[in-house]
Amino acid sequence: MRDCGAAAPPDQAALDVLCPMHARLDREGWIVHAGPMLAKLDARSGVVGRRFADLFELRRPRIDDRVDLLMDGGAVRLRLRLRQPPATGLKGVFVPVAGGAVVNLSFGIALQEAVRDFSLTAGDFAATDLAVEMLYLIEAKSVAMEASRKLNLRLQGARIAAEEKAFTDTLTGLGNRRVLEPLLTRLIDAGSDFALLNLDLDFFKAVNDTLGHAAGDHVLQQAAGIMRAETRDSDRVLRLGGDEFVVILEGPVDRARVDDIARRLIARLEEPMRWEGRPLEISASIGAALSRSYVTREAGAMIAQMMDDADRALYAAKAAGRGRHVVHDPSEGG
Rank of each mutant, 00 (worst) to 15 (best):
E181I: 13
D68N: 06
G173L: 01
K40L: 04
E271N: 06
D72A: 11
Y136V: 12
R44F: 14
A23K: 04
C19L: 14
F204Q: 01
D11R: 13
D129L: 04
G74V: 00
Q156T: 13
I261W: 02
R159Q: 13
D209W: 01
G277M: 00
G334P: 09
I303H: 04
R239Y: 03
L238Q: 01
D259S: 13
I138H: 12
R255Y: 09
L153H: 13
A126H: 08
V76I: 10
R51S: 09
D68F: 12
A7S: 12
R116Y: 11
S45N: 15
A6D: 13
F245W: 04
L90R: 11
A215V: 02
I138W: 10
P85H: 11
V67D: 06
A310K: 04
H328T: 04
P272R: 00
I63Y: 08
A144H: 10
R255D: 14
R50D: 07
R263Q: 14
E332Q: 15
D209C: 05
A316D: 08
D42R: 14
T88S: 10
L130T: 12
G321V: 02
D3L: 13
L82T: 04
R186Y: 09
G5H: 07
F204P: 06
P86G: 07
I188T: 04
D254W: 03
A131P: 01
R59L: 15
S119L: 11
D72K: 05
T88I: 08
T168Y: 05
F118H: 05
P36R: 03
R312M: 07
G333E: 01
P182H: 01
H213L: 01
R2F: 05
L41H: 07
A284K: 07
E271Q: 15
R83N: 01
R228N: 04
I261T: 08
D233S: 10
E163N: 08
R77Y: 10
F194K: 02
R66C: 10
D26P: 02
F194N: 07
R178W: 00
L130G: 11
R312G: 03
Q12I: 09
V219D: 09
I226G: 04
L211E: 06
S106C: 12
Q156R: 11
V253R: 02
L18G: 05
H33Y: 05
G323A: 06
R178I: 01
A127F: 14
Q221G: 14
K150R: 14
A23N: 07
R59Q: 11
G323E: 11
E270F: 02
R297N: 10
D311M: 03
A8K: 12
E181L: 15
D64H: 11
N198H: 15
L249Q: 03
D16W: 08
